[in-house]
Write a protein that binds this DNA or RNA. Structure first.
Lengths: 192, 192
DNA sequence: ATAATAATTATTACCTGCTGCTAAATCCTG
DNA sequence: CAGGATTTAGCAGCAGGTAATAATTATTAT
């Protein structure tokens, strides 16, 4: 209400912003940026319910730990349930809110694609395989919380070229189907 | 060389594993799991060059901070450079090591697909759009560190259905091309 | 069996980035 | 100038360590 309150509010907003854009700042860093003392920063955080640096870092780490596993660096997206190299395979993905479009709550296509693509690659009996061509169809939208079953079948194999069909089901409904033409760069140990 | 050395090595391997699968363990937790003392765990970490819990958490957080922005919850994969709704758009993605297959160091297709798909969706003049069909071709492999330019063009628009072509270039070379058939669930504010 | 060596454990001082608390100083407004 | 709001200072204590030293406990070769 008073002039001071406005200044305070502005500073608190600024603090919130700074931490949002960079959660790796110590109270000391923030104090310097806002030109207030460290105790004031702590007071502000307390008032705003913003946790300390280490908590924030931990939150970022935890938030992303599973996500990243599910999409970034793991060798396969989803969980491999069953596989017969060179023939067929099954994998499963539990969809979550973080995979959806905010507006529509529908799971982004690339998560479904990734499930299919990585299964197609896994099912090939080769050390290194790349997708050359993919023809895919999303048949019905998928919402967060669905459990997606992907089934891949190797349809043909001529030399280094493989054709793999992948169908993704949610319960009894097919939500996706795709044909992948893959190229093996290296055959499996078996044949080396 | 000695029997003890083997025990030690096994324990150190086990420690490495445990931390790899769960970097959120304190030395105390680890000590309990290995049934050794806390100082031993510290000694092992020192010998193996594994940093302390807080460092590890920070690394996970930092590693993923940008990635997640680039692939999970952001509305678009890559950075949108230019867009004319309903007509065309350009986005850019810097590829990193974490996007590659470990063995071949080639960028996983789904990152490229995601760049293309999200640009195709962004370029449509609709609030909510979904991919129905995609026909895509990966022309040459992409390695970590490449800067990928994606260009999307809306080729046709009949009712709620759109056809968008996306080409992805690395320098002067086309690495990917795809045709997306999209369906708009809701038209943009403009037409509402 | 025993000295030598490796491996493990204990102990202590110190560090960062805090929390929680109390108290003092400063600012602003009426 | 009183009086509340706001800011700052100062201190004890905490988690999860580092770094260093010393003591204890295997293990092994001889």
């Amino acid at each position: 209400m008073s002039k001071t309150s406005l200044v305070k509010k502005e500073r608190q907003d600024s603090l919130r912003d700074k931490i949002k854009t960079n959660p790796f700042l110590t109270d000391e860093d923030i104090a310097a940026q806002l030109t207030v003392s460290v105790p004031t920063v702590r007071l502000y955080r307390l008032e705003l319910g913003i946790p300390e640096l280490r908590e924030r870092i931990k939150n970022v780490a935890e938030d992303n730990y599973n996500k990243v596993r599910s999409l970034d660096s793991s060798e396969i997206v989803g969980e491999l349930m069953d596989i017969q190299l060179g023939s067929q395979g099954v994998s499963v993905l539990e969809t979550t809110k973080s995979m959806t479009f905010e507006k529509s709550k529908i799971v982004r296509g690339h998560f479904i694609y990734s499930l299919a693509e990585s299964l197609a690659i896994a099912v090939i009996d080769a050390n290194v395989a790349l997708v050359g061509v993919a023809n895919i169809k999303y048949k019905i939208p998928v919402y967060a919380g669905s459990r997606l079953y992907a089934k891949a079948q190797v349809k043909s194999n001529k030399g280094n070229s493989f054709i793999v069909w992948v169908n993704i089901m949610e319960r009894q409904t097919e939500v996706f189907r795709g044909k992948f033409i893959l190229v093996a760069l290296e055959k499996s140990e078996q044949s080396q």
